[in-house]
Amino acid sequence: MAEQVYWDDVNVGDEIPTLQKNCSTQQLVVWAGASGDFYQIHYDQAFAKETGLDTIIVHGALKNAFLGQLLHDWVAPRGAVRKFGCTYRGMDYPNQDIVCKGVVMKKYIDGSNHLVDLEIWTENPSGQKTSPGTGTVTLPARG
């Protein structure tokens, strides 16, 4: 993990370090077990095709969890993820890159908390934002 990021050093418009993912079908099965989402379109190709899909697709909630990791890895060890989420706008497929990105939209202080709001999203190999969302994190302040 990278060095601690401090609230003071963050600027609106900053891009945070990207997180690259590429799900094997096995990872989707591990996720199914971990999350309890056993909908067959995520691991049973025949079932997925019957519902009209080209092939199995990556769970939306897994992409959301990737965005949670994106934020956690940026603020750790001393910051915390307060709020994050996304809408499931487009499908992603196994064995394709999913790149998680974030941009700082706002920095502010609420009481003793130093907060940052971000736009976050996953991007498919065509550069489309398949899971656009937002996040709020706390960061430590210098001094």
């Binding site: 993990m1 993912k21 990872q27 591990v30 996720w31 077990g33 971990a34 999350s35 897994l62 969890a65 990737f66 949670g68 990791q69 956690h72 890895d73 750790a76 060890p77």
Partner: peptide, 13 residues
């Protein structure tokens, strides 16, 4: 449960 979830996502912390 925490470990399985973290492993499924690919967390390193």
């Amino acid at each position: 449960g925490c470990r399985l979830f973290a492993h499924a996502v690919g967390h390193t912390d």
